[in-house]
Amino acid sequence: MPLYICNAAKGAISNAAKSKIAEDVTRIHCDVTGAPATFVHVFFFEDAPQWSLNGKRALLFGSIRAGRTEAQKKQIADQARHAIHTQADIAADDIVTMIVDTPASWVMEGGDIMPEPGEEAAWLAAHEAKMAQQHAS
């Protein structure tokens, strides 16, 4: 978490562009929120009905941990739209972005409940120590 789902019209985003958009979205999320890159998942689909395009060429749906400000969410959405526009050559007004909150306490990753925003460093240190201990035993 976060999970970014990018659904696009068939053939609208090449595999090469997907890789670059994933890099951009990961960087944008980390720059805006301070979260580590290891938390960021970006998955691409084509014409997936569960994330309706509503006549647009691309949709970016982001489910992020609750606690970010509206300004942060707008910054992520605007910059991610620009990344898709630039990397896939899709008109900006043909791209929809949507960011929704999910409480960190509802999500388990790496076997641990996700940290609240701002508590990532302590969580990562504890998680890595736990993994090292399990690996050693």
Partner: peptide, 10 residues
């Protein structure tokens, strides 16, 4: 997720 379409930490 189709092949070459899923990324974690880019």
């Amino acid at each position: 997720v189709p092949a070459a379409s899923g990324f974690t930490a880019a």
